[in-house]
Design a protein around this nucleic acid. Sequence first.
DNA 1: CTGAGACCTGAATCAGTATTCAGGTTCCAC
DNA 2: GTGGAACCTGAATACTGATTCAGGTCTCAG
Lengths: 209, 209
Amino acid sequence: MARAAAAIAKRPLPVTARGQRTRQKILDAAEQVFGELGYHQAGIAEITQRADVALGTFYLYFPDKHAVFADLVRALNYRLRKEIQIAIADVDDRVDQEVIGFETFFRFVERHRNLYLTMAQAQAVAPELYRWHYETLARGYARGLKDAQAKGQIAADLDPVTTAYALMGIAEALGMRWMLWDQRLPAGIARRSLRKLVEGALRPRQGRR
Amino acid sequence: MARAAAAIAKRPLPVTARGQRTRQKILDAAEQVFGELGYHQAGIAEITQRADVALGTFYLYFPDKHAVFADLVRALNYRLRKEIQIAIADVDDRVDQEVIGFETFFRFVERHRNLYLTMAQAQAVAPELYRWHYETLARGYARGLKDAQAKGQIAADLDPVTTAYALMGIAEALGMRWMLWDQRLPAGIARRSLRKLVEGALRPRQGRR
DNA sequence: CTGAGACCTGAATCAGTATTCAGGTTCCAC
DNA sequence: GTGGAACCTGAATACTGATTCAGGTCTCAG
């Protein structure tokens, strides 16, 4: 229970390579198990078994179940942002960036099916972290949109934050529909529709005002 | 565990008014508790306490914890669709329908803060139901979009299903951001941006093809 | 009135599982 | 080679909380 203040006695990070490897094995197993079963169904026993270490070893690296989960959310957030940043880096039209960002996200979801379940669980298990995840993403996103507005690439009268959340919502919904349910990117019509939606939404209207 | 086939021994619905009232009290309490604490933190004891009935009474109306939860998800889905249908009924431009649908959704979220947590939990607790929830919404949504295309109100080259999921994603993301986090609808700029996004995305492009 | 459904009660049971702990084992600097 | 960090082990503990059940209480048709 004791979810008290900052405290949450961290365990010291392993110093030797062996220890680091073990910690990582646990983290990887945890991603699997949490993603498959959800936070509460996931048992420490199951995690350590898949990580191929003894039960007690878990508590060498994490003070409790909640802690691995938190680490996981942070790691997922970090990797996701990183991958998108890299993918987008040397594209200069914002709409193109958008489309590439989406595809990168979809591919990320493909490699981390568990992302959705993990984040969904986070909403109940670690609300602050959950919110942090989206705010973090939104912050960067909104910044990018503002820059694009300055360059006249997208409509100037859109609120960047609102737009950022809207676009994240689209990514999430289609990521679920396509990558989790269908398990693959859809045929051309759907993909092209996505681009048209984004383009229509963002591009400055020709004639208008 | 026994999540076996259809079976799931339903308890007979109450026949007397008293029984119906009690069942409903439990259902209402359950919505609160699941929404506040999440599926696993929610205890039957807490639910029955808030419903002001004894622990055992719960099992008179629901075979187990899972069953109330499922009922809840179905009820939420039903009410949501109903409210939006009604709100939209006598609006004839699809973009207007869209905007009104969004606002209706936001107000629904305001009255059912717990909707998000409940659905998030559903992803782990009752995946079939979770998916059913979105597919149900999407089906109706896509139908509406197709009709609007037939009337030339929105671009003909958009895939209705893709568009439906994209719009649901936007609603969800902004509902979370505005109604759950800020706890109120935002000022004009943001609201107007939403309309512009939707309008830009859906309306047939003037010049093009 | 009255008795048979229909409802309601809450202490007791019981299974699952997070966490602890009392010892090993590895590894390498000296 | 060896002592002490740094790691690792897994049975035992402790507790939480869903579900059961033996026995009331209400209510209204006849």
